[in-house]
Nucleic acid binder design. Sequence first.
DNA 1: ATAGATGCAAAGGGTTTGCACTTGA
DNA 2: TCAAGTGCAAACCCTTTGCATCTAT
Lengths: 132, 132
Amino acid sequence: MRTQQLATTQSRRTKQRDALADVLARTDRPLSVSELREAAAKRIDGLGIATVYRAIGALLDEGAISAVEIPGEPTRYERSGKGHHHHFRCEKCDRVFDVAGCLENLRKLVPPRFRVSEHSVTLYGLCAACAP
Amino acid sequence: MRTQQLATTQSRRTKQRDALADVLARTDRPLSVSELREAAAKRIDGLGIATVYRAIGALLDEGAISAVEIPGEPTRYERSGKGHHHHFRCEKCDRVFDVAGCLENLRKLVPPRFRVSEHSVTLYGLCAACAP
DNA sequence: ATAGATGCAAAGGGTTTGCACTTGA
DNA sequence: TCAAGTGCAAACCCTTTGCATCTAT
């Protein structure tokens, strides 16, 4: 996150950024750029993809949203402040869901003298809506 | 992995594929596409990038290699047959290590009616060589 | 007024595909 | 022989950037 106080540039309020921030703030699951754009485009006609990316960059800088990287998938974004959690990707509908909780003993897996500072866990399968 | 028996096409032995498969078979750490190409290009002059990707696809299909997807990193590939394991990426030396073992209760994390079929765990930190 | 924001189009980086040529079986 | 494999270039997908125009402040 870039320093805001020392920045020589100011961030402006625009209907595009408001709409994008609002979509992210109201959604609990991580959204891909295209999902985000489609949702915001319902309110902002002709919303450009570059604007979406630039807004995402600004929101990341502010710490308002976080990137969710699923291996082999384009980056998704979700609002910050949900606490520690991981993600579940439905292999049928491709949506990604939050998974509350975590396994505390992950660090026990590593060899001696290895120091674990972070971890990423992604589960794959079928979500409730897609499960038979 | 695609079905081999029912396939109408046969796989051929070529010096390009031999070289690529050999590089992967001899290397214990996961290799990126460019690393793989560079290593194989020492033996095969003019090795095309498309050939590398097609060979990777074939090897994946055969189950000879597996993709190692680390969030935010280019896909790497490693030989198969190491059994279930995960990966640890050292934040100092950037090397990726295999992590044996796993957590059996991962599936308990998901909401009701969600079906877990696979999972990916990546640990980050300092490896034994880089830890203070 | 004016620096920041937007939209478009072009450019990048990584991966895939179409096609004519080459080669293994 | 002749389908599979190769190399090249073009196409693709996702993301970033250049630029003229618009707009929040």
